[in-house]
């Protein structure tokens, strides 16, 4: 399963133009200053944000192609998506949040809940499965969002700053969980502000600035030889 995309999105004065290929089980980390287009890139891949031009191919299947006018709606893409800030369904319990995707696609409630509990346990949230999700702390909510993305048996993972609110301990736990699921062969795009996430998880790092790829390489290579001021600052933060 390979994710191959050329994403062009133009909105007002902002323009994003990026090519990317993520192989089976590969993790591409995307970093960049605020407003560089990280979230737009991720949301374009989910189908939420329409492409101005370009294509998105997943394992040979066409999700988007502006030359033929093809676009698969977000609900049929079977991607594991965690958007920024978690965005849980506040009126539902943590368990129902995680079970939401499978249930929406017709899995029986009991089965979906059992699977949800397993994922929540994996992420250290077994005790909070029944809690209303708007009562969870920021870090707990973020882990529920990761579990919710994994629960749909996705063909690829798209995670927008999934570890931002996590403390050191839960962060490494959550990284391990993501790593395990990626290892089953999921191409993964990880938007992050922390080079450590990239160094720990990613095979490739894309530094995005002003909607363009400013630098690409292994996370270590970028850390060792940053090409832009932003990359240098990010590298200095972990040195």
């Amino acid at each position: 399963m390979t994710l191959d995309a050329h994403v062009v999105v133009e909105r007002g004065t902002f323009s994003l133009d990026v090519r990317l290929t993520i192989p089976t089980g590969g993790v591409l980390a995307v970093m960049g200053p605020n407003g560089s287009g990280k979230t737009t890139l991720l949301e374009a891949l989910t189908g939420i944000t329409p492409l101005t031009a370009g294509h998105v191919h997943l394992d040979g299947a066409v999700l988007d192609d502006t030359t033929t006018g093809t676009t698969v709606p977000p609900r049929d893409r079977r991607l594991g998506v965690a958007l920024q800030d978690g965005l849980l369904f506040g009126h539902l319990s943590a368990r129902e949040n995680v079970a939401f995707g499978p249930r929406a696609q017709g899995t029986r409630a009991r089965e979906a809940r059992t699977a949800a509990d397993a994922l929540l346990t994996e992420l250290g949230l077994a005790a909070h499965a029944r809690a209303r999700s708007d009562r969870l702390s920021g870090g707990q909510a973020q882990r529920v969002a990761i579990a919710r993305a994994l629960a749909v048996h996705p063909r690829a993972l798209l995670l927008d700053e999934p570890f931002g609110a996590l403390d050191v301990e839960t962060r490494s736990l959550a990284r391990d969980v993501v790593r395990r699921h990626v290892a089953r062969g999921l191409p993964t795009l990880l938007v992050t502000h922390d080079l450590r996430d990239a160094l720990d998880l990613a095979d490739e790092l894309l530094v995005l600035e002003d909607g363009r790829a400013a630098q690409r390489g292994t996370p270590q290579a970028v850390a060792d030889d940053p090409a832009t001021t932003y990359a240098a600052r990010v590298a200095a933060a972990v040195a």
Binding site: V81, L87, A104
Partner: peptide, 24 residues
Amino acid sequence: RRALVAETLGATPAYVLRRVTLPA
């Protein structure tokens, strides 16, 4: 944006309305 998340999880508009938007 919550409705959009629900969509990425495979929910149809009617399902989103019933389980996400209306309760909210």
